[in-house]
């Protein structure tokens, strides 16, 4: 073969060195860039965690709930369940791809349907997880320095503020609304308890102690002595917080809540759009679009995206719940 012929072959077009279709390749490159986005978020989470390495919330003290099991301490079982749901829907997806290779329309339909159901269960579970996290559990006191003081009894079990705070019947402070005060100023909801109510409750209940965020050598949060507990709350306490949002977080550093909402939210958004794309593909399968096209490669491409969502969750699960 002369060089001219070889060059014609190389530059004449139609070469496929990666032996992969354009669509699949581009999906792979999109996945790489999306993976880097997620890595950026998780690395930023790592940065903040290393910055507050001695006071970061302990995940299995934060996520302890399981639906329909109230008051049962079930750390991580729910996320483990969510992980399993997502892996399961990944399996039905790859089975759909496999059925597509065999041009088996009815099987692809069933497996796509199951994948969509799995995705919906996952998004629903995440909504429940968010709801529990936002509503909060025991309540805590935020100090002037922005630290969180939680309450425990003598045995170290958590105590909810609502169980010991003394409600003051004659609260003179009500929520300011623009209709009954300055019309150009607004105020958010007032905390359920004022500092005075919490302090009175703490004074009245001799066995309630304060637990700070500082992690001691045993890897547990430090519990203060009775005298020091009273001192901390009275001297530094500023605000009663219950639950978590982007400003305050009863479980510890507000950054923990910020990253939790942002990263699981961004992932949840991926799952949600994945479900939408799966639904579109599902209807195309049902209508026989790919049967006529003679190839189920579209199923393969959304499959890649769907597995990627699962892949990201595996990492989110590790870095938010396990490590």
């Amino acid at each position: 073969m002369s060089t001219a012929v070889a060059e014609g072959k190389t530059w004449g077009g139609g070469n496929e060195p990666l032996k992969s279709s354009y669509g699949k390749m581009m999906m792979w490159f999109f996945i790489v860039s999306d993976a880097l986005t997620f890595s950026g978020f998780l690395a930023a989470y790592g940065f903040s965690r290393f910055k507050f390495i001695d006071s970061w919330p302990i995940a299995d003290e934060v996520f302890t709930h399981f639906p329909f099991l109230h008051g049962v301490d079930a750390p991580m079982y729910y996320v483990a369940f969510m992980t399993f749901v997502l892996i399961m829907s990944s399996v039905t997806m790859v089975l759909a791809v496999d059925a597509g290779h065999q041009m088996n329309k009815s099987k692809v339909t069933i497996y796509m349907f199951l994948t969509i159901i799995g995705g919906l269960i996952f998004v629903g579970s995440q909504a429940w997880e968010w709801n529990t996290f936002i509503k909060g559990d025991y309540g805590a006191i935020q100090t002037k320095g922005g630290n969180i003081l939680q309450f425990v009894d003598a045995e170290g079990h958590r105590v909810a503020v609502r169980d010991f705070a003394v409600s003051d019947e004659h609260k003179d402070r009500t929520q300011h609304q623009s209709k009954n005060g300055l019309w150009f100023v607004d105020e958010g909801t007032l905390p359920a308890y004022t500092m005075d109510e919490v302090i009175h409750g703490l004074q009245a209940n001799k066995d309630v102690l304060v637990r700070t965020q500082i992690i001691n050598e045993e890897g547990e949060k430090t519990v203060l002595s009775r005298a020091e507990s009273l001192n901390q709350v009275m001297k530094n306490g500023k605000l009663y917080v219950e639950g978590a949002n982007l400003h305050v977080n009863e479980y510890g550093s507000p950054l923990f809540a910020d990253f939790f909402f942002f990263i699981t939210g961004f992932h949840g958004f991926h799952v949600f759009s994945g479900v939408l794309i799966n639904i579109i593909i599902f209807f195309n399968v049902v209508l026989g679009t790919y049967e006529r096209r003679g190839s189920y490669e579209m199923v393969e491409k959304v499959g890649l995206y769907w597995h990627f969502v699962d892949l990201v969750w595996v990492f989110v699960f590790t870095f938010f719940y396990l490590v």
Binding site: P17, L18, K19, S20, M25, W28, F29, I31, V32, A35, L36, S39, S90, V91, M93, V94, V97, E300, G303, L304, H307, F308, D310, L311, V314
Partner: peptide, 23 residues
């Protein structure tokens, strides 16, 4: 997940490396 669910095992070495090494 990548190798078996996403069928990376069946792709060419070049594509595998492009995706994995970069990331």
């Amino acid at each position: 997940i990548t190798w078996d669910f996403m069928h990376m095992r069946d792709e060419t070495k070049a594509l595998q490396r492009m995706v994995v090494w970069t990331a």
